[in-house]
């Protein structure tokens, strides 16, 4: 390939040579068109060894894998969530909404052995507001809030960008709330009874 630029007043031969080298270049690309880039991750040894051939990937069918520690869509494994509210507090854009209800009975432990004491009738993350900073995932004590490799999740209606992670239906949530209030009342009644008994004596 010619490296020197063709001067304005160079001879016919130089011009022909430069025309031919240009034509050769495009022809070379045309001939290499039978090779195609394969969707491989950057750590793959082939990744940098594919300089020839078509560079385009047919995206929805093929995609270069994203890094494991990339920051994409959040996922909460609600089974392991202790509803500590740390993620909601640290979030710089306040896109996590958590409501909690105290459990009346024993609801078991998370997979890493932490005791669960709260239900989460509401655990919403608004992915449209989220800036994917990843702070919430780093504070989560049980590591149940994680980033997934999913990055293609645009929606027609922005309401669908709010992801609901709670595992309680509204009825169940009401039931838990009622149980909790009942327990509170019972405790209050027991307390009052104990107080009255003490006064009497």
């Amino acid at each position: 390939m010619e490296k020197e630029a063709i001067r304005n007043k160079s001879g016919v031969w130089d011009v022909v040579k430069s025309l031919v080298s240009g034509a050769r270049l495009t022809m070379q690309h045309f001939r290499n068109a039978k090779n195609r880039r394969t969707p491989e991750y950057v750590s793959d040894e082939n990744y940098f060894k594919q300089p020839d051939g078509l560079a385009t990937l047919t995206y929805p069918y093929e995609a270069i894998p994203v890094p494991d520690n990339g920051r994409y869509r959040l996922h909460n494994e609600i089974e392991d969530c202790i509803v500590c509210d740390l993620c909601a507090k640290i979030c710089p854009v306040n896109c996590i909404t958590i409501e909690s209800v105290k459990a009346t009975e024993d609801i078991g432990t998370t997979s890493d052995g932490t005791k669960k004491r709260l239900y989460a009738p509401v655990f919403d993350i608004d992915m449209a507001k989220c800036c994917y900073c990843g702070l919430c995932t780093s504070v989560c004590p049980t590591d149940c809030l994680t980033m997934t490799p999913v990055y293609d999740f645009s929606e027609v209606d922005i309401k669908n960008m709010v992801y609901h992670f709670t595992d309680l239906s509204p009825e169940q949530a009401q039931e838990k709330q009622r149980l909790f209030e009942q327990q509170q009342e019972e405790q209050a009644a027991a307390k009052a009874a104990a107080l009255a008994a003490r006064k009497k004596s």
Partner: peptide, 13 residues
């Protein structure tokens, strides 16, 4: 297709 191949693209698919 020729344009695409010369520019390392795929063209209509």
């Amino acid at each position: 297709k020729v344009a695409a191949f010369m520019q390392d693209r795929l063209g209509p698919t």
